[in-house]
Simulated assay, not measured.
Amino acid sequence: MIEWAVSNAWVVWLALFLLLAIIEMISLDLYFIMLGVGALGGVAVALLGGPFWLQVVVFCITALAMIVLVRPIAIRHLRKDPEALRTNVDRLIGEDALVLEPTNRMNGRAKIGGETWSVRTDDEVALQPGTYGSVVRIEGATAYITRRTRMTGLD
């Protein structure tokens, strides 16, 4: 059995890669897939006829390089730009709001993203029609806005 494993080490490395890939699918930590890439390095050396000790060295160096160099970049790209991941009404937070009716803490209407919304202000300052506000939060069907100092165009 040991003689077969040594003479067919590429099969052992490939099985190790598959096992690590399955564990990665469960954990989603990006550690096990980096180790799996190291195992693929072992497969390559085994197929080229390299000795077992060289296969292990290539596995270790490749896996370590992947963990140290590639994993941080992959994590940064996976967690990049959470603003783009916002959905539904969360997308409207920070958007401009064109005030359509006098708006205060109790009531008002504004155009946000091409739609007319019920709005209220978060502060004591009332906003007059034609002025711009910025959406700070949304509760139910009501958007809360504050005065915007910079004017930007809306549809």
Rank of each mutant, 00 (worst) to 15 (best):
H77I: 11
V99E: 06
L48W: 10
L16C: 10
V89H: 06
I67T: 14
K80R: 14
I22T: 15
M66H: 05
D81F: 05
F52I: 08
L30P: 00
A5S: 13
H77T: 14
L30K: 06
A97E: 04
D90I: 09
V11T: 04
L14W: 03
D81Y: 14
F59Q: 09
I73G: 13
M25G: 15
L30M: 10
V57K: 00
V11N: 00
Y31T: 12
F52R: 06
A9M: 07
R79N: 14
L54F: 10
V70R: 06
L92V: 11
L85R: 03
D96M: 09
V56P: 01
I23N: 01
L16I: 15
F52P: 08
T62A: 15
W53R: 01
V99S: 01
L78T: 12
A39R: 00
V58S: 00
I73H: 13
E24C: 07
L20G: 02
V89D: 08
A63T: 14
D29Y: 11
R76T: 11
F59G: 03
P51A: 04
L19R: 03
N8T: 13
I22A: 13
V70A: 08
I67K: 02
A44L: 13
D90L: 08
E95V: 06
W13A: 03
G94W: 15
G38R: 08
S27L: 13
H77Q: 15
V12R: 03
M66V: 14
R91Q: 03
G36V: 10
V12S: 02
S27P: 02
R79P: 06
G36L: 06
